[in-house]
């Protein structure tokens, strides 16, 4: 049963990816941008312009371009998506999959840690505030849920940099946080890339100095994201729990004389299952939404890559980025859905 469900979901996801690649292809060609002019400069001669246009394949009809892009009935010498090749960047000339392979793990590492920590904080806080709705804690939690979710994360990131780096140094003569200039001190030897997650890699290569420094560099960006996303997560967990505590089955369980520990477990179980889907939603949101944070801390993640590609009209890179982000979020949704289906019998395969 579960396998049929997984297979069906994977098939749907593949269809969605095809849809997304088509939409993004047409979308960027519908918009009035001139990538050739951006590449050769506005003062270039007509000949140079035409040469560049031909080199990019933009002199072909849109249908032919689509064929080249998809790798189906291609008129180009290179492969397309169907062959598992995302194309070469118009700016750097290197394969896009290689470039994304370098940038993506940075983003994934940032948001995975942030969400993990945010949930570790949000679950107990949200539940406690739901159990004691009259306490001061509940009021603070309520305020936090509303406030943090509506804040400009890049500004807060900047403020944290100012406070923990600049101001702290001026006041106390040492840095509480490193300069926002990357993932690791450039003077240190970077660990070999194994998973792309720098913390994991430094442990795997037994480079503990790099581990400590990388963790120090990740501290502020992760703190900023946790600061922002913990708000809405706490809010939703609290709402779930409040609803469950008022539900018929909790009242009934108590009226049957179940021990309070069992009743709590009943409530937790019912409240946690829907909260799990939140992980997926936030993961998908942060994949594309952590861009400004990556910029502030110069982490070199997918967000910065996308800015670079978009501002230089690097069409293959834009298409690749969107496709990869969509693929990762669909993968996360799928995983969460499968876990959810295991937890909640009401979900039919």
């Amino acid at each position: 049963m579960i396998w049929r469900f997984v297979v069906r979901r994977v098939l749907i996801a593949i269809l969605q990816l095809v849809g997304i690649s088509l939409v993004v292809f047409f979308l960027i060609r519908l918009l009035p941008a001139d990538p050739v002019a951006r590449l050769v400069g506005f003062n270039a001669t007509q000949v140079a312009y035409d040469q560049a246009e031909a080199a990019l394949g933009l002199n072909k009809s849109v249908i032919q371009q689509l064929g080249d892009y998809l790798g189906i009935m291609s008129t180009a010498k290179y492969d397309g998506i169907a062959q598992g090749y995302l194309g070469d960047s118009w700016v750097t000339g290197s394969p896009i999959s290689e470039e994304i392979g370098r940038f993506l793990p940075v983003t994934l590492e940032l948001i995975t840690y942030s969400l993990l920590i945010a949930f570790l904080i949000a679950v107990p806080v949200g539940i406690t505030s739901a159990m004691r709705p009259d306490g001061v804690g509940a009021k603070i939690t309520f305020f936090w849920g509303l406030f943090a979710g509506s804040q400009p994360e890049f500004w807060w990131g900047l403020m944290f940099v100012f406070f923990f780096f600049t101001w702290w140094w001026e006041q106390f003569g040492f840095f509480l946080a490193p300069a926002p200039l990357g993932r690791i001190n450039p003077m240190l030897i970077e660990p070999a890339v194994i998973t792309g997650f720098i913390l994991v890699d430094s442990i795997l290569s037994l480079n503990f100095e790099a581990f400590v420094d990388a963790a120090w560099h990740l501290m502020l960006p992760v703190f900023t994201l946790v600061f922002i996303v913990s708000g809405p997560i706490i809010k939703m967990i609290r709402q779930n729990m409040v609803r469950v505590l008022r539900s018929d089955f909790i009242l009934y369980a108590r009226s049957c004389g179940l021990p309070s520990r069992s009743v709590s477990l009943y409530a937790l179980r019912a409240a946690m299952a829907p909260a799990m889907t939140l992980i997926g939603i936030f993961y998908g949101f942060l994949l594309g939404g952590a861009v400004p944070i990556e910029v502030i801390f110069a982490l070199g993640g997918l967000g910065e890559y996308s800015i670079r590609s978009i501002l230089s009209f690097d069409y293959p890179a834009i298409q690749g980025t969107v496709l990869i982000i969509a693929m990762v979020s669909l993968l996360v949704y799928l995983t969460i859905d499968i876990l959810h289906a295991f937890l909640d019998p009401r979900i039919t395969f």
């Binding site: 849809g19 939409v23 978009i310 009209f313």
Partner: peptide, 24 residues
């Protein structure tokens, strides 16, 4: 509805960047 679903699978920030940067 299928199109709307697809649009929701797009990363909001990056889509907005593409739309703005490429159209001026």
């Amino acid at each position: 509805m299928r199109t709307s679903d697809l649009m929701q699978a797009f990363p909001v920030f990056i889509t907005a960047m593409i739309l703005v940067a490429l159209s001026g």
